[in-house]
């Protein structure tokens, strides 16, 4: 008969809990440091890598991924904060500016990420008339290009062409006629552009002769000839050219030498300055000398 009250079953006494062999082994395995770190770090990494790898191995996914990245990048770069709106070009004259503007991006607005300022600067500086330039994206999205043009200090005649030369001897442009830049001294000859400093010194030292100076000619890539009007030449030595020129000027001041019929003043040998006169002058002098010697034969 079924009992009316609830009776505990014979073996309802709480069984002693004991881990199963499997559970026990599992716990011991998980307490093994190497295994545990493998499970906790290695397995998730492998899982993630395999998922990502399998997704990435399909070409359409790869393309989509690349497109997304490109899109995001573009969206970011095209934000108004990064856009360059205007061009601010300063320094230099009109021709130079026209040349420079050809190197700059023609269409604005353009993202500042697309501008390679270093390259633009290098390109601009590669131009002859530009000594240096600074290129930066300044206030209110303006591309500020500040040019520092070369200042020509002399003209260098090379055959028919007239080149503008700055103090470093670098060519900064060409002109058609001497009359365009009358204020610049003229130099000529091979290797003239390498000794522009000395030439400028000589021009500075010319002093009272400056009105008459036509130019300096480099002779044999070694020394200077100063050419004056009336085809007069002053041959200057390789060393101490300025001092030699000073001596010529002193002679000129004292004896009005250059106004006479002198063709060449040869100062190449400092111990023996030599004058060469024009032919008629020489003839005249010879005649005078003969007359004098006939008159005074007793000498």
């Amino acid at each position: 008969m079924r009992s009316l009250i609830r009776r505990p079953v014979a073996d309802a006494a709480p069984r002693d809990p004991a881990p199963s062999r499997l559970g026990y082994r599992y716990q011991r395995l998980m307490l093994t440091p190497g295994f545990r770190s493998t499970v906790r770090i290695g397995v998730p990494i492998i899982l993630i890598l395999s998922i990502v790898g399998s997704w990435y191995s399909k070409p359409e996914n790869r393309a989509e991924f690349a497109a997304t990245i490109k899109d995001t990048k573009q969206t970011f770069q095209q934000r108004p904060q990064f856009m360059v709106q205007t061009l601010n070009l300063t320094g230099g004259d009109l021709t130079v500016m026209t040349e420079v503007a050809a190197l700059l991006p023609s269409e604005f607005p353009v993202s500042s990420f697309d501008l390679d300022l270093e390259k633009i600067r290098a390109d601009i500086e590669a131009l002859d008339p530009i000594k240096s330039a600074s290129v930066r994206v300044g206030q209110a999205g303006a591309l500020e290009v500040r040019l520092n043009p070369r200042v020509p200090v002399a003209l260098w005649r090379d055959g028919a062409t007239l080149r503008l030369i700055d103090a470093e001897g670098t060519e900064s442009g060409q002109i058609n006629a001497r009359a365009d830049r009358l204020e610049l001294p003229l130099i000529a000859g091979d290797g003239a552009e390498d000794n522009i400093d000395e030439a400028l010194h000589l021009f500075a030292a010319a002093g009272p002769l400056i009105e008459r100076v036509r130019g300096l000619v480099r002779m044999g890539e070694r020394r200077w000839d100063m050419v004056l009007d009336r085809d007069q030449r002053i041959l200057l030595p390789a060393d101490g050219a300025v001092a030699a020129l000073d001596r010529v000027i002193a002679l000129n001041d004292a004896q009005d030498m250059l106004n006479r019929d002198v063709a060449v003043v040869d100062m190449r040998n400092a111990a023996r300055p030599t004058l060469r006169m024009n032919e008629e002058a020489a003839d005249a002098l010879r005649r005078v000398n003969t007359t004098t010697s006939n008159n005074g034969a007793g000498n």
Binding site: D16, P17, A18, P19, R21, G23, Y24, Q27, R28, L31
Partner: peptide, 15 residues
């Protein structure tokens, strides 16, 4: 089983 129980609990505490 009893040894297993004790060892497992002690290992768990000691980690």
């Amino acid at each position: 089983r009893a040894i297993r129980t004790a060892v497992q609990a002690a290992q768990k505490m000691a980690n």
